[in-house]
């Protein structure tokens, strides 16, 4: 039988159901795993996403486009293809997309992680015949510590800076990572300020009832605010912005899976790297693939050739698929969503 999905110029396409999954160009109908910019292209006509992800999606695409939102696990049928969305544990509202057609089941996992995260529903393994996995950190050098250890390291760094009379500027992905940090840091250490891009998403998380540490939008802080001892959360792209100057003497940190490698941290001249990722590390990728029970795996964005080869050597049928997803980027081309709250 034909593949249920095929790689078209605009993205992964399900011909039987007439829809795309996370297309990178505008299309008629898009089923969306999550609201990060490399998975969500604005200007499509219709979107299907999770109810938990709807507000984030709307914030990203603007007022154009029709959004249909469904609960995790509920199914919708497009031309006989049954589509349901299941928690991926990546960020709030993120989903694995399950497709079922004539007894054939595919799961597109989007971006995912297995680690604990109080800001989103935990990854839920979905049995399938073909599993489409990311491979952002698809090498065995990528192995995360417990997230609680990374958060403890952030707390210790913040506390130390406070004692040394400095502010702490922590760079983190403005959607997902920043909120995960806010849900986990010890807010008794000092006040927390945010860059506009972070604050926009904080509001959406809080609106959904997610408990985050109290924050203040840095730009609306009164003049002559004493930043000593404060934690400032900003997107990585703000690193070179003149915006930073106001904070006086500060130490910089970056929360990213790439901080596992010294070279990437040193190259970016960041004082401290915290290994905290919303993506699966190598052991988690292998666990997720195994628990899907799939005999066939498509490997997208990241170390796809390497992971595919490993899976082949482990007796699975694996294909490296070229997509335009980017995974965890902590540099340059972040979405320009410096929205003001």
């Amino acid at each position: 039988m034909d593949n249920l999905l095929e790689r078209q110029p605009d993205g992964l396409y399900c011909a039987a159901g007439g829809f795309y999954i996370d297309p990178w160009n505008p299309v008629e109908r898009a089923v969306i795993t999550h609201a990060h910019a490399d998975h969500l292209c604005p200007s499509s006509k219709r979107y299907l996403c999770t109810r938990a992800g709807e507000a984030l999606l709307r914030a990203r695409i603007g007022s154009e486009g029709l959004i249909e939102a469904v609960d995790y696990g509920a199914s919708v049928t497009f031309d006989g293809v049954r589509v349901s969305l299941h928690p991926a544990g990546h960020i709030r509202g993120s989903a694995q997309i399950r497709l079922e057609y004539r007894g054939e089941i595919w799961v597109v996992s989007g971006d995912y992680k297995l680690d604990a995260d109080s800001t989103c529903a935990p990854f839920d393994p979905v049995p399938c015949h073909t599993f489409v996995t990311e491979s952002t950190f698809g090498l065995p050098i990528f192995r995360w510590l417990e997230p609680t250890e990374a958060l403890a390291a952030i707390n210790a760094w913040w506390r130390g800076n406070r004692q040394a009379g400095k502010a702490s500027v922590l760079f983190a992905y403005p959607l997902g990572k920043a909120q995960r940090v806010l849900a986990g840091v010890d807010s008794s250490i000092g006040p927390i300020y945010t860059h506009g891009a972070v604050e926009t998403f904080n509001r959406l998380y809080r609106d959904a009832g997610i408990a985050l540490a109290a924050t203040q939008y840095a730009r609306s802080a009164p003049p002559k605010t004493d930043w000593t001892g404060a934690l400032i959360l900003a997107p990585p792209m703000a690193k070179t912005a003149p915006w930073l100057r106001r904070f006086g003497d500060f130490s910089t940190g970056l929360a990213s899976g790439w901080m596992r490698i010294r070279g990437t941290r040193r190259r970016r001249s960041i004082d401290r790297g915290f290994v905290l990722s919303d993506h699966a590390d190598w052991p988690a990728l292998l666990t997720a693939i195994r628990s899907s029970g799939a005999r066939r795996v498509w490997v997208t964005h990241g170390y796809r050739a390497q992971l595919a080869r490993w899976l082949e050597e482990s007796g699975l049928e694996a294909h490296a698929i070229d997509t335009q997803y980017e995974g965890e980027r902590d540099d340059a081309e972040l979405p320009s969503d410096e929205a003001e709250p």
Partner: peptide, 29 residues
């Protein structure tokens, strides 16, 4: 010691760029 094939060590080394570090990252926890 890491129980991985040689090619995967090579790919890892390529990504890290430093032998001592690659080995430290690949060894069992």
């Amino acid at each position: 010691e890491a129980k991985i094939p040689e090619w995967l060590f090579g790919e890892s080394y390529q990504a890290v760029g430093d032998l001592a570090e690659t080995i430290a990252l690949l060894l069992p926890p």
